[in-house]
Structure formats: C-alpha cells, structure tokens
Simulated scan of single mutants.
Amino acid sequence: MDKVVATAAEAVADIPDGASLAVGGFGLSGVPNELIKAVYARGVRDLAVVSNNCGALDSGLAVLLAAGRIARVTGSYIGANQEFARQYLAGEIEVEMIPQGTLAERLRAGGCGIPAFYTPAGVGTQVAEGGLPWRYDGRGGVALASPAKEVRDFDGTEYVLERGIRTDFALVRAAKGDRHGNLVFGKSSRNFNPLAAMAGRVTVAEVEELVEPGGIPPDEVHLPGIFVRRVVALTPEQAADKGIEKRTVRGR
C-alpha cells in the first residue's frame, strides 16, 4: 500500500514515446512542475497531452512544448502561450479544442468508466457539426478537421454525444497526500487535478506535504488513493515554488 517513490525521475521512468498524458492544473495553479521536468529529462517524444492549457510563462507543459516533445493537445485554452499558437498555426502540432466544462466531464467520465455522455454544450456549432481545425497545413489551410458528432433530441432539446477520456498516464499536484495515495488539493488547484488523476491508467502525484496513513481525515479526502499509483514528496523549496502569472498592485 505504500505508494511513495523516492524521486520524480523514478515515478515517470516507464513513460514511453507516444504516451498519452492527462495533466492537472490551470494556468500556473496546481501544475505538476517537478513531474513534467522529469518527463522532459527522460527525453520522451510524440506525447499526446490532455490538459486545460499547455503551460504558461515557460513553465509546466510549455517546457515540453518548446522542446517539440508534444504531438497532440486536447484542451480548452491557448491563451497567451505564443509558442503554442505558433506551433498550432504552423501545422507542427495537432490540437483538439473542447469547451472547458465538456473537457472536465470527459475526464471525469473516463475515470468513472463511462464511455460517452450527452451534453447541450456545442450544439449548433462546429463542436457538434465538425470542421474545427485540428491541424493546419502551415500555409493557412486546414490539413485535418474535427469530424461531426452524433446529435440527439431528448424531450425537445438537442444534445451532442461526447466520449469519455482515458490516458496512459496522469500527472497531478496535490497540497497534501498520504502513503496510500489519498490526496487533498488546495483551493483552485482542485479544478482539473482530481479529474486528470481519475482519467489516467497510471496516475502519479507530486505532493507538497506527505503525511502518514490516517493523517488525512476521511471527510477531507478530495481524491481517494484507489486512483493513484505513485506519490512523490516535494522538498520544501519545490513546494514553495509557485509562480504568479499576472502581478497586479493596488494604488494607495
């Protein structure tokens, strides 16, 4: 039951080229930076990443992206990541853009063993009708577009069929974890981290604070250890290293 491994490098040592990864975090919040650095150090390539966004401010998944290690991104936000936008428009990377709530539910569904579900989000748009550019040809044209999805009427309202997401591995960050893999997420880092963890067949968690079994009251567990295969304890310095995406100040 002790799922703790000594280093991040050991925790990701079996991730191969071409693997699919569900990665937690949103912007700079709750990003498993140490695990991502370990994946980068392994040199694996052609990764298919499922994450809300693909890194920011040269951190998180932006490290793998800039190195050309990512072949496909399933997400909902490009934002201010100029390298992500450049690779997408140049046809260097395949991108499946999904409404943010739909992405969250697809991850959750995959983790719960639900193969597909119906949602009204995207009905009447290219999300349902197809034609969203998945890959550009580098000359302004579309080399690969999204296919049309099944749309069905329920009680007079149309819904589009979306498939659950399962990935080979998942990388997440938690505020606290025990040796059995039970996790607690801090504030906004609870957005995509539990869902990504559920979707991975092998889930690896880096934790800011490692406690012994019983150190987390059952009612405070955000994600039960059944979903987690490996736990890596961060050093105090690593746990405290949290970037600020946009610093603002208020006038006196």
Rank of each mutant, 00 (worst) to 15 (best):
Leu107Phe: 05
Arg201Cys: 05
Thr74Pro: 00
Leu57Thr: 07
Thr248Lys: 12
Ile216Glu: 00
Lys176His: 13
Leu234Gln: 05
Asp219Ala: 11
Gly164Glu: 06
Arg139Val: 14
Val232Ile: 08
Val202Gly: 04
Ala170Asp: 05
Leu61Lys: 03
Val202Asn: 01
Ala121Gly: 03
Val49Asp: 00
Asp219Phe: 11
Asp219Asn: 10
Leu195Pro: 04
Ala19Thr: 02
Asp2Gln: 02
His180Met: 15
Ile78Pro: 08
Arg106Tyr: 10
Val44Asp: 12
Arg42Leu: 15
Leu47Met: 02
Arg250Asp: 03
Ala196Gly: 02
Cys54Leu: 14
Pro16Val: 08
Glu92Asp: 11
Arg201Met: 00
Ile98Leu: 10
Val123Ile: 04
Leu210Met: 13
Ala90Met: 13
Ile165Ala: 09
Cys54Trp: 08
Val231Cys: 13
Phe185Asn: 00
Gly110Gln: 00
Arg135Ile: 14
His180Thr: 12
Val127Met: 07
Val63Met: 06
Ala116Leu: 13
Glu92Met: 12
Ala170Lys: 03
His180Gln: 15
Lys246Ile: 14
Glu237Met: 08
Gly18Asp: 09
Asp58Trp: 00
Ala104Arg: 12
Asp14Tyr: 07
Ala128Ser: 08
Ile165Val: 15
Glu105Met: 15
Leu21Cys: 14
Gly130Ser: 07
Arg252Met: 12
Arg252Lys: 10
Gly101Lys: 03
Val142Tyr: 15
Gln100Met: 01
Asn191Leu: 15
Gln126Phe: 14
Pro236Arg: 13
Glu237Val: 11
Pro133Val: 08
Arg69Pro: 01
Val73Tyr: 11
Leu35Cys: 03
Tyr40Arg: 11
Gly55Trp: 09
Ile78Asp: 13
Gly186Ser: 14
Val49Gly: 05
Ser51Asp: 01
Ala8Ile: 01
Ala85Lys: 15
Glu237Trp: 10
Ser29Arg: 15
Thr74Gly: 02
Val23Gln: 06
Arg152Ala: 13
Phe169Asn: 01
Gly215Ile: 07
Ile226Lys: 14
Met97Cys: 08
Gly111Trp: 07
Arg108Phe: 11
Pro224Ala: 13
Ile226Asn: 10
Glu209Pro: 05
Ala233Trp: 07
Ala121Leu: 07
Lys246Leu: 14
